[in-house]
Structure formats: C-alpha cells, structure tokens
Computed example of a mutant assay.
Amino acid sequence: MSFARVRALVVVGLLAVTALVFVVVAVVRDSQSNAGTAKGCPDGWPLADIALRDRKDVKINVLNGTDQPGLARQVADEFRNRQFQIKKITNEKPIDDIAVLRYGPKGVGSAHLLRAYFLDNAETKYQPERQDDSVDVVLGNGFQQLATTTEVNQSLGDLGAAEAPPGTCPMPVKK
C-alpha cells in the first residue's frame, strides 16, 4: 500500500471518529428531550389535544349565523357525507364572517382540520373553559361552500401542524 493510501485511510478514519463523537455529545446533551410533552407545563394549564383527527372522529355542531333558512342543515349534510359526526344543528345571531370555529382544549386538532374546509378563512375562537371535544361551526353571511377534497389537502399542507393555543400545553402524542 502506498503512503498516499495510508494517509487517506487515516484521514477518513479520523473524520468518522470525530463525527461519532459529535453525534454522541449531541444525543447526551439534548435539551429538547421533553419537547411535545406536558413536562414543564405550568400547574393548572390545560392540555391541548393537537393531534390531527380523522374526519370520522371529529364532532361538529353546525350553527346558522345567516338569514338564509336551512343553511345549517344543508352544510351539516355535506359534513355528514364527508364522514364527520354532526351533534347539533341550530341557529345563531347573524355574523358577517365566512365562518367561526369555536373549540376547547380537546378540540384543537379537530378545529385545525376544519380550518382547511374553509381554506383557512374561518375565524377561530379558542374557549379554554370548554370541556368537550366538539367544534362549533358558525356559518356566516360570507359563507359560499366547503372546500373540495383536493383544496382541503392543499390547505392542510399550507397550514402545517396544529399548535397549542396560548395558555395551554400540547398533549403528549400517543404512539
């Protein structure tokens, strides 16, 4: 073996050992090992369920906030056809928005999914005192139609992952 080959093997070996040392140090000194868990959460803060739900697991209350009679029932039927669980269909005082999504700590992931059905044009209202996992969908005068499946998928990609609202801690992810 020539001297050049031996020297090249020694340099490659030293680089491999150096890389291994850096990896071990990074793993041992990892300060983010509790990221995404409730450890370090202040006492009394609610845990927000930020997991993106399947449509069949999302519970919705559809409220008609328009002057158009029957809109809530029509949109509830569309959601039902898309495999959502419809809990209530009622009327509410008229609003000018496209839609308003009201939810509590257990409904953060569900509300995130529903935002995509309104192409992220729905106003979100987090209600920390709310105890159930349902989401109120209040339809406003600006509402025209729900997004198509393709539009929902694109919107979900644009939205990224759900984030815990201020004053909450993300619930540990179930594996």
Rank of each mutant, 00 (worst) to 15 (best):
R115M: 07
R115W: 01
R115K: 06
R115I: 02
A116T: 00
A116R: 05
A116F: 02
A116D: 08
A116K: 13
A116I: 07
Y117I: 03
F118S: 08
F118D: 09
F118T: 07
L119T: 02
L119F: 02
D120A: 15
D120W: 06
D120G: 00
N121L: 04
A122Y: 04
A122F: 07
E123Y: 09
E123Q: 14
E123G: 05
T124K: 07
T124G: 06
K125H: 14
K125D: 04
K125E: 08
K125R: 06
K125Y: 09
K125F: 12
K125Q: 11
K125V: 09
Y126P: 05
Y126V: 06
Y126G: 12
Y126C: 02
Y126D: 13
Q127K: 03
Q127Y: 08
Q127R: 02
Q127P: 00
P128R: 10
P128M: 11
P128V: 01
E129H: 15
E129K: 15
E129G: 11
R130H: 09
R130L: 13
R130I: 09
Q131A: 15
Q131D: 14
Q131I: 12
Q131C: 01
D132T: 13
D133L: 04
D133H: 14
D133Q: 15
D133G: 05
D133F: 13
D133I: 13
S134C: 04
S134I: 08
S134A: 14
V135K: 03
V135C: 06
V135T: 05
V135R: 02
V135F: 01
V135H: 04
D136N: 10
D136T: 01
D136K: 02
D136H: 01
V137K: 04
V137F: 09
V138N: 01
V138E: 01
V138T: 12
V138A: 03
L139V: 05
L139D: 05
L139T: 07
L139F: 05
G140C: 06
G140T: 04
N141M: 10
N141S: 05
G142E: 01
G142M: 03
G142W: 00
G142A: 07
G142C: 14
G142D: 03
G142Y: 01
G142R: 11
F143E: 03
F143A: 03
F143W: 03
F143N: 01
F143M: 08
F143D: 02
Q144C: 00
Q144F: 04
Q145H: 10
Q145G: 07
Q145E: 13
Q145S: 15
L146V: 03
L146G: 10
L146W: 04
L146D: 06
L146A: 07
A147I: 13
A147W: 15
T148V: 00
T148M: 04
T148I: 10
T149W: 03
T149A: 15
T150L: 11
T150P: 01
T150Q: 14
T150A: 15
E151G: 13
E151W: 09
E151F: 11
V152D: 03
V152K: 11
V152W: 07
V152F: 13
N153T: 11
N153I: 00
N153L: 09
N153D: 08
Q154Y: 07
S155T: 11
L156M: 13
L156I: 08
L156C: 12
G157A: 06
G157M: 12
D158N: 13
D158K: 12
D158Y: 07
D158H: 05
L159E: 00
L159S: 04
G160P: 01
G160L: 12
A161C: 00
